[in-house]
Simulated scan of single mutants.
Amino acid sequence: MTEPDLDATALRREFAEELTAERKLPADWRAAVEAVPRHECSPAFYVPNDAPGLTAYVPITRELVGAEAWLRRVYSDETLITQFDGRDIDWSDPQPISGANPTSSSTLPSLVVQMLDALDLDDESTVTEYGTGTGYSTALMCHRLGAERITSVETDAGVADRARAALDRCGYAPRLVTGNGLAGADRSDQAARTIATMGVRGIPWAWVRETAPGGLVVATLRGWLRSLGLVRLVVEDGQHATGQFIAADPAFMIARQQQAPANIGMLPGDDDGKTRETEVGPEVLNMPDSGFVAQLALPNSRSFFMPDDDGRLRVYVLDAANESFAVLTAAGAGWLVREGGPVSLWAEVEQSLALWHAAGSPAATEFGVSVEAGRQRVWLDNAEDGPSWRLPVVPGS
């Protein structure tokens, strides 16, 4: 392990104290945050700039900004982006980047330790992690439990190689697997705990299968419209896993294998579908609680907006699975919706919102999740006969 000229140890202690004061660092993880050199996992990275308009990212390295500014950025509660669009960065001459999608990062530490704390570890726990990334969260678990108890899976070979080198510099040698994490970790045993640091549209059955009965799975569910939230599931008997959402805010990058199709398909023509009035406008897609419910109603859909020939705003909702569509257009103080295809998409949203309102408009953390082989549901009130929504089943898992 190497330390830069500035006292990184002191910065880690200062950072841990800040997180503790903000009640963002569970006591069980403070020693790991103080010990693990995050700068070894993120020697170079990008952060978003503060300029208005299209999001742009600026590179941060020791050479570009100086050792102190670089280290202080590393030891802050910030996500450090290390890859865009699945392509490696030329760090010999890094340039500002815009119009790109982050695909690998070191997630903000407060979220990392929140998820790790949700695993409810003891000293004997074994863990499978999906999404090694920079290796920082892997290193925290190695410090807490010992590297021999940790298996971590990364789908991107270049990212995996860099994480392996970083963990070696930190002094840890866990079992690292490069491959499709949705298919499992190829374990010869079952882990006591499973954690995923990327978003998934549904819980891969392999994660349940490779977690011991009574064990926990902590992961973020998300869709193509938005994140749903962080869930914690108990694996009951190898055939079922049940639990609930424990946080609604985390929005991890979606698993590479589950990204939305690049081609959105053909836009509906102006004469396609049937038009009707609706009391539900497209703002429900972006609001925190109603957006959660809308995502449940539209598991295979994406939305975007564009003006029509008269300059009026149109909001499109397109379903990638069945080519159904909904087009919303402002009409005075209300909205018109034009729907077509085998599923009335906006009617699904309206019905889901009505069920949610009838239940008292509960927060996401009041929703439960049930996972079986070939079937997954999010539900309200109770798993047997309460309102429920199907989640996509992860193929090949």
Results as ranks from 00 to 15, higher is better:
T2N: 11
L6M: 08
A8Y: 09
E14G: 10
E18H: 02
A21E: 07
R23A: 02
V33Y: 11
R38H: 00
C41L: 04
P48S: 03
P48A: 07
A51K: 14
G53N: 00
Y57R: 01
V58L: 07
R62F: 06
R62W: 06
L64P: 00
V65R: 11
G66E: 03
A67C: 10
V74I: 13
E78R: 14
T79C: 06
L80W: 08
T82Q: 12
R87T: 09
R87V: 05
D90I: 12
Q95Y: 09
S98T: 14
A100P: 07
P109R: 00
S110D: 01
L111Y: 06
V112Y: 04
V113F: 02
Q114L: 06
D123Q: 14
Y130A: 08
T134G: 09
S137H: 12
E148A: 12
R149I: 07
R149L: 07
T151C: 12
T151H: 14
V153M: 03
D156G: 04
A157R: 07
G158V: 07
A160P: 09
R162W: 05
R164M: 03
D168N: 10
R175L: 05
V177G: 04
G179R: 13
D186R: 15
R187L: 15
R187S: 13
Q190P: 03
T197H: 02
I203F: 06
P204K: 04
V208Y: 02
R209Y: 12
E210W: 03
A219T: 11
L221I: 13
W224V: 02
D237I: 09
D237E: 15
Q239N: 15
A247K: 13
F252L: 05
I264N: 03
G265L: 08
D270F: 11
V280F: 06
E283R: 13
L285I: 15
P288Y: 09
D289H: 14
S290P: 14
G291N: 15
A294Q: 08
F304L: 14
F305L: 04
M306Q: 09
D308P: 05
Y316C: 03
Y316Q: 01
N322Q: 10
A326R: 11
V327G: 00
A330Y: 01
A333P: 02
G341S: 02
V343R: 15
W346R: 13
E348L: 08
L353C: 06
T365K: 06
G368L: 04
V371T: 08
E372N: 09
R377C: 00
E384M: 10
D385L: 03
P387H: 12
W389H: 04
V394W: 02
G396C: 05
